[in-house]
Nucleic acid binder design. Sequence first.
DNA 1: CATTGCTATGCAACTTTTTGCATAAGATAG
DNA 2: CTATCTTATGCAAAAAGTTGCATAGCAATG
Lengths: 179, 179
Amino acid sequence: MSLKHSLLVLLADNPASGYDLSQQFKGSVGFFWNASHQQVYKELKTMASAGWLDCDTEIQSDRPDKKVYTITDAGRGALTRWLSQPAKPNKYKDAFLIKLYGGRHLPRTELIKELDEHIALHRKSLSKLQGIEQEYQALTKDQQQLFELPYLTLKLGISSEQNWLAWAQDTREVLSGNA
Amino acid sequence: MSLKHSLLVLLADNPASGYDLSQQFKGSVGFFWNASHQQVYKELKTMASAGWLDCDTEIQSDRPDKKVYTITDAGRGALTRWLSQPAKPNKYKDAFLIKLYGGRHLPRTELIKELDEHIALHRKSLSKLQGIEQEYQALTKDQQQLFELPYLTLKLGISSEQNWLAWAQDTREVLSGNA
DNA sequence: CATTGCTATGCAACTTTTTGCATAAGATAG
DNA sequence: CTATCTTATGCAAAAAGTTGCATAGCAATG
């Protein structure tokens, strides 16, 4: 339901191609929403035929051509309508926690091994977010003002990852029998 | 993909009905996995016909009859196979953060109003988890041992909610212009 | 010079999830 | 006494998401 609206929010700032938008889902936006490139391309097509977006093909010589989507007035209307309705509460899903919950059926060493893999992933994710934060902090005050709200979402991403990693350290000690 | 495995993990401990399992998704398990009752009933049916579960109807006089599902050896095998494969990294999706990210297009008062609603939800969720924690802490050491791993998942739930609420307080001040 | 990775788009089949509806009896609140 | 809540199950349609495949040229690594 909200992929459409994520795309509208991103396109409300700047026109972009499906590829560009997919890249955003791999970056700072990916913390709170994500979609595969297939899904994005398909959704953009649907949104364009609903009149929410205009599509222009940008011919590139050294790279594949781009389809650049621009939000229309109808698109902005749809976005505003959605924004003024209450957002559905988020639902967290984490397969690793299922494994931990049912970890009695598994040797501790395996649990720890998998925990370590997830720690590595979360560390990577944290440093990516921190890199984006540094870019933000390098901006002038005026520019920062523009990204004030996206920066708030980034801060939640960072503190969530830090919280996860702190929990993982404690958990690792319990699993190792050092607690 | 992991609904099957959540159900297997839960059924590995105790036989349960679809209703029971749905209730668990509303409780402590709901922090890291969830599904509607329709989904659960359907999935249990599929799993039973795959031979992973046995189904017995428990006739109740003052309440509707129950279908109690018990895990089979084949089910335990499927669970073990799944447990020994790496779990997919979690993906977080939060529609409210989309709104905050694109909040420039909305009056601050509306953003704050919605933030407050989500704060209320997260507080409720936190106190539910803390209630479960108190039940755990009231157990004897031996009983606690049995729930050692589920308790670890609960601790992540609690600290995640606390982290979210702390972020929300900061965010509220920024949105109110008091930062 | 071969392989991998990045840019860039998309179809088709399948699985998963959501949403709306349906039934039914006892319990509790106003 | 009426309405809502809880227990208990499920079907069917639609929407959303995943997985596998396909194309194609340029750049960089080895």
